[in-house]
Design a protein around this nucleic acid. Structure first.
Lengths: 207, 207
DNA sequence: GTTAACCGACCGACCGTCGGTCGGTGAGTA
DNA sequence: TACTCACCGACCGACGGTCGGTCGGTTAAC
């Protein structure tokens, strides 16, 4: 029998979520069993179910943690940024992409059966990012480079469009579909924000 | 032992897909077992797996069938429509909404655990609807009411934005979030298409 | 006789449960 | 201060039950 180790509940919970994230990340949610998480931490199954009432609830905790971390650093960035709206835009997008690549959770989420989780994660991220972008849109309007009626809604609209059209894994797009959209995105964003032609070319140049 | 009934494979496959659709619709994909489908049709498990190699593949067939039916009638409508681009737009949107309400699949799809199926269905519908809308956008450009660079991509972009921001069930939006977005949508669509102010007010007036 | 549609007993991977155990903590006592 | 003892809840892990999927065999059809 395993020696019993008691820890601070907060810490233990954290441990479990982190281990789960690692595993979900590497092998996918579906292919990761509760037993995997147990073994990885050297704890019993009952312990996990003491903190989470289902495997799915554990996944939600993982998502929440991931989203919060990603948003946290974007918010810090926004607070300390200086410059024109367009310049800030460019840097925020870049930061967002960095975050995406860091958690390859998104990549491994592309397994069949994970579409639901994938969608929920994307929507959660978008819902939290939108206010940050909305702020930049307002600044852009004041500067005169943008002209939009509903900053927050426009931020949501654009983020959703870009994410879902770009993201493979939700729908099995052909490579050429993704390509053709990527090329069209700058122009569409400009139209949406009433921004000068070419001002969002950095969206594809950065790739 | 059950008496063996042999049917035309095409017909049998159809039967299975329809039964599965009913059940997925009513109780959700996850809460529906293969046994449910079997019992509902009075066939053996092996028969189902003779036609579909996994439960997930069966889901794909259900989605494909649903989407094809909905698109079929929209395409017929487009072919026989006459009038200005804006007028056609109005009627296509209306038809799309009718289709949505007809299959209450979308309604019952709002159960937890159905987000994946819901998303896939929406994306599939959008992928097929986009070309229809793109055609109207091109006509609008010729008429001079719209001005867009990439008709197909713009159609995709707008459809995704509208569907995902409007649709509850994918993400637990508050009622007020949905409201505030609904009000902003006409202006955002107009911006994207470079259409005259107010020309898309019908999107909310129809509600 | 050959094909393939169809059957259903069986398998095994996993999630989640539940009765029970043991470490920590703090109030009571001396 | 030192000791103890009752209680809480963190922790354990064998086991139950569900379900997706398999496979050898059977039967209708041509």
């Amino acid at each position: 029998m395993m020696t019993r180790i008691v820890k601070d509940p907060i810490e233990r919970r954290q441990e479990i979520v982190e281990a789960a994230r690692d595993l979900f990340d590497r092998q996918g949610y579906r292919n990761t069993t509760i037993a995997d998480v147990m073994d990885h931490l050297g704890i019993a199954k009952g312990t996990i179910y003491h903190y989470f009432k289902s495997k799915e609830e554990l996944l939600e905790a993982v998502i929440e943690m991931t989203v919060d971390e990603s948003i946290e650093q974007m918010r810090r960035l926004v607070d300390e940024m200086e410059g024109s709206a367009l310049e800030k835009f460019r840097r925020l997008v870049e930061a967002g992409r960095m975050a995406d690549e860091h958690d390859d959770i998104l990549d491994h989420l592309h397994q069949p059966g994970n579409v639901g989780m994938h969608t929920q994660l994307l929507m959660a991220v978008i819902a939290k990012q939108a206010p940050l972008y909305a702020e930049l849109i307002r600044q852009g309007c004041e500067e005169g480079v943008f002209q939009v009626e509903h900053p927050l809604e426009t931020a949501e609209f654009v983020l959703i469009g870009v994410q879902f059209l770009t993201d493979m894994g939700i729908y099995p797009w052909a490579e050429e579909d993704l390509m053709r959209r990527a090329m069209a995105i700058p122009a569409m964003v400009e139209a949406q924000l009433n921004a000068p032609a070419g001002s969002f070319n950095f969206l594809i140049e950065q790739l």
